[in-house]
Amino acid sequence: MSFYDVIIKRIREIQEKAEEEEPVTNVTASAMLTAELTLIASLLIAVVMIRLIHPILMIIMIIVIFIIALMAMPIMPKLRQEQNDSFNNMIFYVIMALGIIIALFYWGNLNV
C-alpha cells in the first residue's frame, strides 16, 4: 500500500468517526497531504534551532520528533479536529496557553 493510499484511508477513518458527510475527493486528499508535509517539514526545520542551546540535544530532538511524526502520521486530520469551532475546545486551549505562557515567563526567566 503506497503512502497516498495510507493517507486516504486514515482520512476516511477519521471522517467516519466524526460523522462528516464530506466525500473524500482528490482535492481534499492532496490538500491534506500538502498540509501534512508542510507541518512536519517546518516542525523539523524549527527544531534545528535548538542547536543554539546544545548541538547534541538538537540531534536527539530531531530523531525523537521524526519518529513521533512517523508514528502519528497522518497528524493533520487530528489537528484539524482539535482546532474546530467548538467554544469548549477554544476556551480550553486559551486557558492552557495562558498557563503555559505564565509558567514559561515566570520560571524560564528566573532560572536561566
Binding site: A31, M32, A35, T38, L39, M76
Partner: peptide, 16 residues
C-alpha cells in the same frame, strides 16, 4: 509567530 504561521497556513489549505 512560528506557531501562528504553521498552524494558520496548514489549516488554510484544508478549508473548503
Amino acid at each position: 509567530s512560528l506557531l501562528a504561521m504553521v498552524l494558520g497556513i496548514t489549516m488554510a489549505i484544508v478549508q473548503t
